[in-house]
Computed example of a mutant assay.
Amino acid sequence: MATQTIDDLPTPALILDRAILRRNLKRMSDRLREAGVMLRPHLKTAKSVEIGRMAVEGHDGRITVSTLAEARYFADGGFRDILYGVGIIPSKLAAVTELRRRGINLRVVTDNLAVAKAIADAAKDGDTFSVFIEIDSGGGRAGLPYPALPGLLDIARVLHEAPGVDLAGVMTHAGHSYHQSTPDGIAGVAEQERLAIVTAAETLRAAGIPCPIVSGGSTPTAMHSRDFTGITEMRPGVYVFNDLDQEYIGSCGAGDIALSVLASVIGHYPHRNQVLVDAGALALSKDISAQEFQPKVGYGTIANPPAAGMAVIECSQEHGFVAADDPLPYGNLPVGTRVRILPNHACITAAAYDRYYVVDSDLDGGKSVVDVYDRINGW
């Protein structure tokens, strides 16, 4: 059977460069190991057992997920210590119990006293739970706001005193690090993140409540933090692939983006200095995060000549409108030409696909498909 190349693939298709992926994984792995911090990668980005196994190589195998579907998928793939990092609700506890009865240490998160009581009640029949209390370190999404930490001790006491419930620790996501673009700015957020969860942990311990795990998480803060004192684990996610947003934030370089969308030119429109490609909103997403620091990236930029640097400036459902400041080289972009589009936000772009076509730029420049990795979607 002949080797498949990217020119043989239907478009749009999701392309993963294994060589860049491995470098990204090693960089974060080495960084946290040297800092003395455990790595619990957030696999909501990759959603792939193959990539997950690569991410935890040399570590103890703990991971983070964002859906129960991911939890089941990674449990089936052999992972045993899984943090479901989205606030739990009572109606989902039965699904958590199902996995825990299989020997999976599926841990849950809450910042709500009523939910803590529901967890305690659910444990009365002999089932067990492992729970993190979520802290808002400044991102404004979920968690008990720092520095007030309202209700922390009330929630912790309910969980700590309930038979069958393990209060695993505290956690946060420093999502506001994504709005910084300098090492100093990100380091400032990282210190805020650290203080929030370390203060919460110290508050619990001062009240006689154990807090074994102090969990931070975001790719920028994992890369740029200057002090991990008191943090026991970090949960970066998008570092496995990186994207334009991470490049302009400063978490990676231009050559560190492992993911791209393969698209085909489907039309020429010289009167408006544009070409169309067959990757629109459903193939690229309409995430515009990287535009905060570089407005001209549009919905993704093209990586390969002769269209390198051009951007998808607008999307409809299945159409991407590619433009540039200079006249487009239509003669070098005939209809059918394949282009590779770098995403603004790898997590959301990848969610449109059920597989990765894996290439390796260290082998042949990334022209041949060397593997196919599956991924889990849905909830």
Rank of each mutant, 00 (worst) to 15 (best):
R27T: 12
R101A: 12
R107D: 04
M28W: 01
Y356H: 05
A206E: 15
R27C: 03
R72T: 13
N273D: 05
V86D: 10
P145H: 11
P145N: 10
S361K: 07
T97H: 13
G216Q: 05
Y373E: 06
S225N: 09
T337A: 00
Y356F: 11
E233W: 08
G309A: 01
M310C: 15
I197D: 10
T172E: 04
S91A: 15
Y178W: 15
L21G: 01
V189D: 00
L32H: 04
H224N: 12
D326R: 12
G143P: 06
N273F: 05
V261D: 02
I266M: 00
D111P: 07
A352N: 08
A281S: 13
G188S: 11
G87D: 14
T199Q: 07
T337W: 00
K47D: 11
P220S: 07
E57G: 04
Y146E: 01
V214C: 06
T97W: 06
H173L: 11
D166P: 04
I89C: 09
H268Y: 09
S177D: 09
A311Q: 05
Q317V: 07
I376E: 01
A114K: 14
G216E: 06
G36C: 11
A283S: 14
A55T: 14
M310D: 06
R355E: 05
A303D: 04
F321G: 02
A116Y: 09
Q180Y: 00
S215M: 10
S368K: 15
A308D: 00
R23T: 12
A35C: 09
H271N: 08
L9E: 02
Y330R: 00
D30W: 03
F132C: 08
F74E: 09
V198G: 10
C252Y: 06
A351T: 07
P90C: 12
A156K: 02
G85Y: 14
N112F: 01
R226T: 15
A114D: 15
E193F: 02
T301A: 08
A174N: 04
V49Q: 01
L32K: 04
A148D: 14
D326Q: 12
G309F: 07
D245Q: 15
D166G: 06
L167P: 05
R53N: 02
T110F: 03
T199D: 12
H224W: 15
A303R: 08
I313W: 00
A196D: 06
Y357G: 11
L68A: 04
L244V: 09
E98P: 00
V359C: 02
A116V: 14
L93W: 05
L262C: 08
